[in-house]
Design a protein around this nucleic acid. Structure first.
Length: 490
RNA sequence: GCGGAAGUAGCUCACCUGGUAGAGCGGCAGCUUCCCAAGCUGCAGGUAGCGGGUUCGAGUCCCGUCUUCCGCUCCA
């Protein structure tokens, strides 16, 4: 990361705290690692992003509906999804090289070497030993295998290992008020992704909504991941929010729908006015266990291009597994006529294209794109401002209303304007300090429009509107204020 | 988890080799009536992250701990 970008990122983090966007969680108790709270303006911005996504992904779509599934799900959900077994890797550190290994990788690289040396039987014995210990969750036995075989670190060449630690992706808790935490049967997880809430409700929605393939189910909600290292402000948090849409399609059509959603989602981002150069696709080479194609939409954050949204072709992996574990058919009867047979296509488990965007990352990208330090200095007088150039529809506050002075009836007129518009969009009233100071304070919060009531207002009902980005002013009639703002935020 | 750096007012920072904490900005109350911050007056706000130790005395030295940042490591 370049120094200037590091500084910019630091400035953005400070700005977020100072102006009520994002606070460290539980700050009075020294904070909680990788957990953050959204403040008075951050929560408005976040809500506006959610609304923008929800509207474009449900209201403006013929065939996509939304749900709000619970965070707690039946524990078997996570067996079926692969999260219990797939992301429970025992890890070990070499104390000399400080290198961390997945234990299974470490042992396998040792047995690969044995095989290369022609010691097949010995290698197979170690592997079966490892698999047995792994299945039993016996970390001590795994460590014993490493010790017994004098497995060394490839970098330091030593066998100076830490104890084996289990890294669990999912947070768990106990269900019921009187259960013992020892009882595995009562263990429930906090969902690590919202998608499974959609999959388990696939038939409910399809049947009650009389949905026909292709159709989608959208959801916004919290998810929880016990990241090994969670850092970089709100980019990687342990508690975060996802905006996901699972699009159910006929098997065999996944390629075209994958392309469709790739383009549709990029377009959604670009419509917010951030230059295209700030976004790029990153195709996954190594695919997750459930995908047959996957890519990220990356945003050019101050710390570089990083994943903002993922578009995955998930095949029928999830529905097929849920069908297997639940022993309930999760199939769709397709009434469309197959041109080859002249008969309905019939039953199948749909394929799925997933679009999954991190709400908190979207929030961060919008802050980063909006954050601007401007030098307004002249030879006579140095001057600068910090302005958040949010798209008006996302701005936490849409309109600020100022009386030019605190007397002569100006505050009363300004309050009337407040009353007229606060029901339609978020307004902010301010009568303290010089008008210039008030404008600049609103710039720091990203308020797109400021209205100033002056003495002329009393004569002809006109006010000054001042635009955030250009700092230009113009006189408009009081009756035009509502339309001006609504047009910008529609 | 490892290594490095840091933690003093809401923010940015100062207090040099230990002697009971200071500035600017910001905030609040006024003045000014002024359409783009940094005019004037006054006020509020800190048990120096927390805990322990050394010392007559610790923000300052030592240890521990928590948090943050940078670099590794992991990232479905």
């Amino acid at each position: 990361m370049a120094t200037t970008d590091t500084n910019k990122f630091q400035s953005i983090i400070s700005h977020c705290k100072e102006y009520g966007f994002v606070f460290p969680s539980s700050e009075i108790y020294d904070g909680l690692q990788a957990v953050y709270d959204y403040g008075q303006w951050g929560s408005e911005l976040k809500k506006n992003i959610k609304d923008y996504w929800w509207r474009s992904m449900t209201q403006l779509q013929d065939n996509i509906v939304g749900i709000d599934a619970a965070i707690f799900m039946h524990p078997t959900t996570w067996k079926a999804s692969g999260h219990v077994d797939g992301f429970n890797d025992p890890m070990i550190d070499n104390k000399d090289s400080k290198k961390r290994y997945r234990v299974d990788h470490l042992i396998e690289s040792h047995t690969d070497q044995l095989k290369a040396d022609g010691k097949e039987a010995e290698a197979d014995a170690i592997i079966s030993q490892m698999e047995k210990a792994d299945a039993a969750g016996d970390l001590a036995a795994l460590k014993q295998i490493i010790d017994d075989n004098k497995i060394k670190c490839g970098i330091s060449g030593t066998a100076n290992w830490t104890d084996i630690r289990q890294f669990n992706l999912m947070f768990s808790t106990e269900f019921g008020s009187t259960v013992s935490s020892e009882d595995e049967n009562n263990k429930v997880y906090l969902r690590p992704e919202t998608a499974q809430g959609i999959f388990v409700n696939f038939l409910n929605v399809q049947k009650t909504g009389r949905m026909k393939i292709p159709f989608g189910i959208a959801q916004i909600g919290k998810a929880f991941r016990n990241e090994i290292v969670a850092r970089q402000f709100i980019f990687r948090m342990r508690e975060f929010e996802q905006m996901e849409m699972q699009f159910f399609i006929k098997p065999g059509t996944q390629k075209e729908w994958y392309e469709y959603w790739k383009q549709a989602r990029l377009k959604w981002h670009l419509e917010l006015g951030v230059p295209q150069t700030e976004y790029r696709f990153h195709d996954h080479v190594k695919l997750a266990h459930y995908a047959d194609a996957a890519c990220d939409i990356e945003y050019n954050f101050p710390m570089g291009f990083k994943e903002l949204e993922g578009i995955h072709s998930r095949t029928d992996f999830d529905l097929r597994n849920h069908q297997e574990y639940s022993k309930k058919k999760l199939q769709y009867f397709d009434n469309d006529i197959d041109p080859e047979t002249g008969k309905p296509v019939g039953n199948y488990i749909p394929y799925v294209i997933e679009t999954s965007i991190g709400l908190d990352r979207m929030f961060l990208s919008m802050i980063c794109a909006a954050y601007t330090e401007e030098d307004l200095g002249t030879p006579e007088k140095p001057d600068s401002r910090v302005v958040l150039k949010f798209p008006a529809k996302l701005a936490p506050i849409k309109l600020a209303v100022f009386p030019l002075t605190k007397k002569d009836g100006l505050p009363e007129i300004a309050q009337e304007i407040m009353t007229a518009h606060r029901g339609d969009f978020k307004c902010f009233y301010e009568e303290k300090d010089t008008i210039g100071k008030r404008y600049r304070r609103m710039d720091a919060l990203g308020v797109p429009f400021c209205i100033t009531v002056d003495h002329q207002t009393k004569e002809d009902n006109t006010v000054t509107v001042r635009y955030r980005d250009t700092m230009q002013q113009e006189r408009i009639h009081i009756d035009q204020i509502g339309d001006l703002v609504k047009k910008a935020i529609q």
